[in-house]
Design a protein around this nucleic acid. Structure first.
Lengths: 201, 201
DNA sequence: ACCTGAACACCGTTCAAGT
DNA sequence: ACCTGAACACCGTTCAAGT
C-alpha cells in the first residue's frame, strides 16, 4: 500500500466525518472515522495529534459551516441580537456536539473573532471598558447554556418529577422540543438586551 | 476473599472517591476509584450499573454537600437571587465536574426540586404560567453557562488572540480567575432579575 | 509525505467462583 | 449479598515498513 498519489485524508475531511458520526449517534471513535473514510485508524495520526484535535477541528468547522455574519443594523441591540443568534445557531445545528465542546477550553479563533465583534458593538453602545468583559461573559454564558438546552431532551422537564402544582402546570403549558427552546432563548435575549439598554442610558 | 462481614463499598463512597479524583485531575477511571477504595474494579458493579451511574451519583452528591437552601426573603428577587447563587455554587465547588454533567441529561431529583422552588417564587411574583417555564429555562441556561465559565481557565480570554483594541483593553481591565467569574455572574443576576421586575410590573 | 499492519497499554464490563 | 480473578471486546496511540 504505502503513500497514495493524492492524499486520501485532510483535517477537514476528518472533522466532517466525525461530525456526521456525532450528529447521528452522539459519539465517535477514531476507528469509526477511519472506517467512514475508507482508511485505517493509524492513518489519522498523519493529520492530527489525537482525539482532542478532532474535537477542535469540529469546533472550527461548525463556525465555518455557518453563512457570513449578519450585516450591522440600525440599532446596536439589533446588531447584538443578530450576532448572538448566529453564535447560538452554530452550536444548535449540532446539539450532541455541544457537551464535547464544553469539556475543552473554548478558544478557537472563530470564537475569539465573535468576541471582537460583540466588544465593538457594546463599546459603541456606551458600555464602559471596565465592565465590557463582564457583559460579554454574561452573554456568552447565556448562549452556551441555551445551546446545551437545545441538546437536552425534553425529559429534563419531566412533570412526573415535579412536586409543586405550579411547576407541573408550567411544564404542561410550555410545549416541547425545539420551539420551546427557541422561545426561551428569545425571551432571554429580550430580558438581557433590554436590561443593557437601560444600563447605558 | 468473598463477601466481607460489613460491606466495603456504597454508592456514596464511590461517588466521593470519584469526586476527589475529578477535583484533583479532571477525570477518573473505574480502576482508579477501586484503587482509592482498596477494592477491585469489578466490585463497583455490585453497587451501580456503570460509569454513567457514577456521574449521576456525583451530581446527587454535590447538591447534598451544600448547606440547606436559604430561607425565604422579604422581596422575591432576593429569594430568587439566593436560590440561583446556591444552585451555581453547588456546581462551582467542583469546576472540572461540570463538563461531565452536561454530557448527560440534568434530571436529578435535587435539580427538579430546585426548579420547584424557583417556580413557586416566580409564580408568586406574578409571572404568568404560560411564560413560567421559559423564564426558568433562561435562568437555568445562565446558571449552567456561568458554571462552565468557572471551569474554563482564563486562557479563554486571551488578549493575544483578540484583534480589536476594544476587546484587548477590556480583557486587561477585567482581572482574572474566580473573582472575575464571580463578578460577571453577579452582573448577570442584576441584569436578568432587574428585567424580570419590570416585566412583572 | 502519507497509508498500512502489527503491537502496546489501558479501559469498561461480565461472570463464575468463593464466602 | 458482595468481593475476587480471569476473561472479553474495544479503544487510542505508536512506530517501523512500505511507496
Amino acid at each position: 500500500m504505502g503513500r497514495p498519489a493524492t492524499p486520501k485524508l485532510s483535517v477537514d475531511k476528518i472533522a466532517a466525518a466525525a461530525l456526521a458520526l456525532v450528529d447521528a449517534k452522539g459519539e465517535f471513535t477514531m476507528g469509526e472515522i477511519a472506517g467512514a473514510l475508507g482508511v485505517r485508524p493509524s492513518s489519522l495520526y498523519n493529520h492530527l495529534a489525537g482525539k482532542t484535535d478532532v474535537i477542535e477541528a469540529m469546533r472550527a468547522r461548525i463556525f465555518a459551516e455557518q453563512p457570513a455574519p449578519p450585516a450591522p443594523s440600525a440599532h446596536w441591540t439589533d446588531a447584538l441580537r443578530a450576532l448572538l443568534r448566529h453564535y447560538r445557531d452554530a452550536f444548535a445545528r449540532h446539539p450532541r456536539l455541544i457537551p464535547m465542546l464544553t469539556a475543552h477550553t473554548v478558544s478557537s479563533p472563530d470564537v475569539i473573532h465573535m468576541y471582537d465583534d460583540i466588544a465593538t458593538v457594546l463599546s459603541a453602545a456606551g458600555i464602559p471598558t471596565a465592565r465590557l468583559l463582564d457583559v460579554i461573559t454574561v452573554l456568552d454564558s447565556f448562549v452556551i447554556g441555551s445551546a446545551l438546552d437545545v441538546a437536552a431532551p425534553d425529559q429534563v422537564w419531566d412533570a412526573a418529577q415535579a412536586r409543586t402544582p405550579v411547576l407541573i402546570a408550567a411544564i404542561s403549558a410550555a410545549g416541547h422540543g425545539r420551539p420551546r427552546a427557541d422561545r426561551a432563548f428569545e425571551l432571554g435575549l429580550d430580558l438581557i438586551l433590554g436590561a443593557l439598554t437601560t444600563y447605558t442610558e
